[in-house]
Amino acid sequence: MNISKRTKSVLGSILLPVVLIILWQYIFSAGYIASAILPSPHQVIKTFIIHFTENEYSFHIISSLKRVLSGFFIGIVSGFLFGLFIGLSRTAEKIFSPSFNAVRQISIIGWIPLIVMWFGVNEFPRIIIIAAAAFYPIALNTFAGVRNVPREYVELASVYGYNRLKLITRIILPSALPSIATGITLALGMSWAMLMAAELFIPTNIGIGTRIQIGREKFNMALILVGIITVGSLGFAMTSIVEIIAHAADRGRILRKEI
C-alpha cells in the first residue's frame, strides 16, 4: 500500500465520525435538544480534559486496559489450546464439542451472578468473564483452521516422513494461522465488549466502566459519553495494532483480507 492509498483509507475511516460530530454540534447549537439529554461535543471534550487533569482518568484507563489484556490473554491461550486439541483429535471433538456448543449459547453475562457467588466481588471474576468472552472465538477459529488444512499438505508431510509434532508445527499451525488470526481479532473485540459488563455488573471503584456508572448516577451525560468514546477508541486502536502487526509479519499473504 503506498502513502496516498493509506492516507485515503485513513481519511475514509474518519469521515463518518467527523460528519456525525458536525451534525451533533449543529443539533445542539440549533437548540433542538436540551444539554441534559445530549451535551455538546464541546462539553464532552471539556469533561474529557478535566478528567485527565483533575480526576486521574489515565489511572482508570490503565486499570481497564490491564483488566482487558489479562482476560484476553488467558482467553486466547486457553481457547487456542482447546481449539487445537479438539481440532487434532476426533475423539476429543466428539466428547467436548457438543457440550462446548451448548454452553456457548448462554450469554456470558448470564454467568455473572453464579461467578460472583463463587468468587466474590473482586478482580478475579471480572477477568474470568473477559477471558470466557475471548475463549469462544479463538477456540472456534483455531478448530476450523486445524480442520481445514488442505489434504495435500498433510500428504506431503507424510511423503517426506514428518512426525506428528513436526506435522503440527510445520504444516497445521502455519496453515491454520489465517483462521487463528481472525479468532484473535474477534476475541479482542469480545474482550472489550465484556469489559463493560465486568465493570458495571461486578461493582468496583476503578475502571472506565465505573466512570460511566458515576455519570449515570450524577446524571452527567458528558461523563457517560467520555467513557463510551474512550472504550470505542481504545478497542479500535488495539484491534488496528493487532491487524497492522499481523499484516507486517505476513509476508506470504496467507491472511485473508477481512482481518
Partner: peptide
C-alpha cells in the same frame, strides 16, 4: 509427489518450499 494444485506452502518462499522435503531428511 507432484499434485495437480501445486500444494505449495503459501507461508514459505520458493526457495524454502523446495527445501521442505530435505528438512525432514
Amino acid at each position: 509427489y507432484v499434485f495437480q494444485q501445486y500444494a505449495l506452502f503459501p507461508w514459505r518462499t520458493a526457495l524454502s518450499n523446495i527445501e521442505f522435503g530435505l528438512e525432514s531428511r
